[in-house]
């Protein structure tokens, strides 16, 4: 961004050439980067409070995002364990069941099969329910032979299609799959993602307001300085620069604090979550933001701080325009 200069007419001054202008621009940027940081450091408590407010506004949507991320992780694991159970007609004996099971295994879209004969099915049932006596009273086994089919593609739509196809094979009585709850989980996750996005937008606006208000006060306290530099020929960009850097610092600081708090919170929750997962016989680690998401969060918060400052200074500059 090179500062435009009008054609010098009348009073001509020695002006820096284009290269000198670029150097001057860089020099001022460097000076303001340091100066704005120094101003924040000189008032540590006020600075920390502002950054903390930003951090809290960032933690809520980021935290929700992490929770959803872990739900999706769980979802993926469940998808992998999605199987179909194919029940054969009652009159099919064991040898015929074995043959049919091999046919099923050769079907496209089927990754694996496991035959459960009628007797094995009854055994499993008895063990699962602990009702030996009641079932031993039965004259004949009421359960048909069945095959547990693991599909190639675990997505609900593919599994649904596979189940319809297998249901039409000869000797197959019915195909059972319980996908409804998987569906619901996925819909819930999608809903959660929208909520996180909405919260993100809302709290992003919050960050904008926090920074905007803080910068507005800073502008107010430096009103005379702005007036003077404007009178002696400062451009709007020059006036804006220190405040934009302040805003960016606030955003960056708030983002770093948010990352720190999220990490602390993660550590604090890790032990009970692991214990809970173990009691279900599952291994489950709390997800962390990771490097790329952390970088994204910092960029996002810095940008928001910068934008908030831009809005606050822009308002002031618009108010002081020559009439």
């Amino acid at each position: 961004m090179s500062e435009r200069q009008p054609a010098p007419r009348g009073a001509q001054r020695a002006r820096p050439g284009p290269a000198g202008g670029g150097r001057a621009w860089l020099r001022h940027h460097r000076a303001m980067l340091g100066d704005s940081a120094l101003r924040l450091v000189r008032r540590p408590l006020a600075t920390l409070l502002t950054m903390l407010a930003i951090a809290i506004a960032l933690i809520l949507p980021a935290g929700l995002w992490l929770v959803l991320d872990s739900a999706q992780l769980l979802d993926a694991q469940l998808d992998e364990s999605a199987t179909l159970t194919v029940y054969f007609d009652h009159d099919i004996d064991e040898s015929r069941a074995l043959a049919l099971s091999e046919t099923l295994g050769a079907e496209p879209g089927v990754a694996g099969t496991r035959l459960v004969t009628a007797a094995e099915g009854l055994d499993e049932f008895q063990r699962a329910l602990g009702v030996d006596d009641a079932l031993s009273q039965l004259e004949r086994n009421p359960l048909p032979a069945s095959v547990v089919v693991t599909p190639d593609d675990p997505s609900p739509a593919a599994v649904q299609a596979l189940s319809q196809r297998l249901g039409q094979l000869p000797g197959v009585d019915e195909v059972r799959l319980d996908l409804a709850w998987l569906d619901r989980l996925q819909q819930l996750a999608a809903l959660g993602q929208r909520v996180a996005l909405a919260l993100g937008l809302l709290f992003g606006l919050g960050v904008l307001l926090v920074v905007g208000n803080t910068i507005r006060l800073a502008v107010e306290s430096r009103r005379q300085e702005i007036e003077v530099v404007t009178l002696i020929g400062a451009t709007h960009a020059f006036v804006r620069r220190p405040f934009l850097y302040s805003g960016a610092w606030y955003g960056l600081g708030g983002g770093l604090l948010a990352l720190g708090i999220l990490a602390l919170g993660g550590n604090w929750l890790a032990a009970p979550v692991n214990a809970l997962a173990e009691s279900y016989g599952a291994r489950f680690a709390l997800p962390t933001l990771g490097v790329s998401n952390s970088v994204f969060l910092l960029l996002f918060s810095t940008l928001l701080g910068w934008l908030g400052a831009w809005l606050a200074v822009g308002r002031h500059l618009a108010e002081t325009k020559p009439r």
Binding site: R9, R13, T235
Partner: peptide, 24 residues
């Protein structure tokens, strides 16, 4: 008119550069 500039025709973005020619 100051130093050859018609001040009413001076664009807002040029005002800072104009002011640099004046000491106040």
């Amino acid at each position: 008119l100051v130093a050859g500039h018609d001040l009413d025709r001076l664009h807002l973005s040029q005002v800072p550069y104009y002011r640099r020619q004046i000491g106040v």
